[in-house]
Simulated assay, not measured.
Amino acid sequence: MENNVIISIQGRQSFEDTEDETIELVTEGRLESEGDGAFTLSYQESELTGLEGTLTTFQIERGRITLLRMGSVNSEMVFEEGRRHLSMYNTPYGALSVGVNTKKMRSELSPAGGNIEIDYAIEIDHAVAGQNLFRIDVREKRPVLRQ
């Protein structure tokens, strides 16, 4: 089953010796129920995020969330609580090896929506480059009633 949804994303990045950076984005996307508690959530990035021309997809399974980006930026990040995953992050300037160390993760989704929270550290060359927190709220897109 596939639904048109409204996706609200709040992201916070913390770097040593700097003030936290928070971004908020509200966009339309698609939520597909894959059965057995698995979901696929996808949306097109915009100029606002600096990733225009990129499709972002979250593959949500029990105990694992995979973030895929394809287009102007190509990357894959795997989140599993208490585990570290190495990923390649391809940019127009070259590729880097990035470690993703997930501290906490939770997903409460149904075909009608729900929320996802991922708290993780990014490592570049085995050194922590920043702490990140994603909060994603998903709700069904309601038709606009005209009077």
Rank of each mutant, 00 (worst) to 15 (best):
M1P: 10
V5M: 11
V5H: 05
I7T: 06
S8D: 14
I9N: 06
Q10R: 09
F15C: 15
T18N: 13
E19W: 13
D20T: 13
E21V: 14
E21R: 12
L25E: 00
L31C: 07
E32P: 02
E32Q: 05
S33V: 04
F39A: 01
L41Y: 01
Y43N: 01
E47S: 09
L48R: 02
G50P: 07
L51V: 03
L55W: 15
T57H: 08
T57K: 04
F58L: 15
Q59K: 15
E61G: 15
I65D: 12
I65Q: 13
L68C: 14
R69N: 04
G71P: 06
N74W: 00
S75H: 02
E76F: 08
E80C: 11
E80I: 11
R83V: 08
R84K: 12
H85L: 13
M88W: 11
Y89K: 02
Y89I: 00
Y89M: 02
T91L: 07
P92M: 04
K104H: 07
R106L: 07
E108C: 09
E108P: 05
E108V: 04
L109C: 09
P111V: 00
P111R: 06
A112I: 05
G113N: 07
E117M: 10
D119P: 11
Y120N: 01
E123W: 15
E123Q: 10
A127G: 14
A127Q: 14
V128N: 07
N132Q: 13
R135G: 09
D137Y: 14
D137E: 09
R139Y: 06
K141N: 05
R142S: 12
R142W: 15
V144Q: 13
L145I: 14
Q147W: 14
Q147V: 10
Q147C: 12
